[in-house]
Nucleic acid binder design. Sequence first.
DNA 1: AAGTGGTCTAGACCACTCT
DNA 2: GAGTGGTCTAGACCACTTT
Lengths: 237, 237
Amino acid sequence: MESKYRHLYKLLLDKIDKREYEPGDKLPAEGELMEAYGASRDTVRKALELLVQDGYIQKARGKAAEVLDKNKFNFPVSEIASFKEIYRFSSSKPNTIVENLEIVKGDKKLMAALQIGPEDEAFLLERVREIEGEKIIIDKDYFSRKVVENLPLRAAQDSVYEYLEKELGLKIGFAMKEITVHMAADEDYRLLDMGSYDMIVVVKSYTYLEDSTLFQFTESRHRPDKFKFVDFARRKL
Amino acid sequence: MESKYRHLYKLLLDKIDKREYEPGDKLPAEGELMEAYGASRDTVRKALELLVQDGYIQKARGKAAEVLDKNKFNFPVSEIASFKEIYRFSSSKPNTIVENLEIVKGDKKLMAALQIGPEDEAFLLERVREIEGEKIIIDKDYFSRKVVENLPLRAAQDSVYEYLEKELGLKIGFAMKEITVHMAADEDYRLLDMGSYDMIVVVKSYTYLEDSTLFQFTESRHRPDKFKFVDFARRKL
DNA sequence: AAGTGGTCTAGACCACTCT
DNA sequence: GAGTGGTCTAGACCACTTT
């Protein structure tokens, strides 16, 4: 059962996507939405708040909410998204090569990153992403076995997140990402089509469940010319 | 006059910062906060929602809100922040060198970026940021003169955002940022201490006012080894 | 069973913008 | 002055976790 305000949010989002409300247009007033949708003001406001947070509309006192031109902003905005989601808009189909899938334990850096003990095991999944015939990303995922007991190869080849959420029923809560740039390492030259580039963009992610258990650490290494990160931010008050 | 829920938010934030609530601790229940602070449930929940969005606490159904270890996450998280805000935690005082401050018009790339006409003017402000004796960032800011009529040098040397918000009374609404990596250009070698690096991290920002007027475009060029971007994201439902 | 947060409602007052 | 969003309140019912 989906909440009423989330449903209204999706209705409005759909109208914005379909250009029934165009960028620059004013959204109906809260009172009109209440009547049209048969909801209380609080419910309408919750739906609008979601649109604000996602950068679809802008609100200001005394004025009607205005639809923003989200397309000018190039997806994806900042959110937890898997590789498949990120490249859903690219023209050609990206290809994933599983290089390695094994159980590891005892590595000091890993233990620190995943906050596990020396006897705790973790899955290590290494994949190379190929786009338009070029190998440009290495993804090294570590999953704590305390949470992910088993990780079948078919899930690794497809979407790991779909497996975790749909099959294991894990509820992902939040993630921290860190972007830095380094000199390329041996593995980058070995696994990627580096061309004449000698640096690599490193995105480290720490992913937590809804109960704030850390269960995944990912190191994603991107060839610099193909890397792009887009972020939408609101001014804090 | 500050809103009640924002005030409560700051009170709770302060207690978290001062470790009165430590990471892993449970926050008081909504009912307790209502009584302790003399507020309605809705007001308490708005304050808690702000803490959730900022990544200070995690909530889940049926359980009390838990305080997260924000310090593990290294500031800054994703937000619109000026150079001074970003480096407020660094050990040594960063130094800013104003290289150029002029009025420009007619440049095609600029007109497109700021969405202004061929006769509209803009301020161009170029600054170099020096940290621990090394020049590592170039900031090129463009401000539409339709919004920023005058930009005194003292504001450029100090904090431009403070001038815009406090002296001009501008209300900044939101911003889009894009991070990419490129080969270093002549100006990078000329203005920065590039050492042996030959690439540069480019952060482009488009900043909008609360009424969704685009008024600033910034190109920030960082030496790759000193660049770091941290982002906190919640899973979308 | 008790305690917790999630959702929804109805009404009130205020600050601001528009015309 | 009319219309808009921003804040605050009080009460209700539900879903989930904990004991």
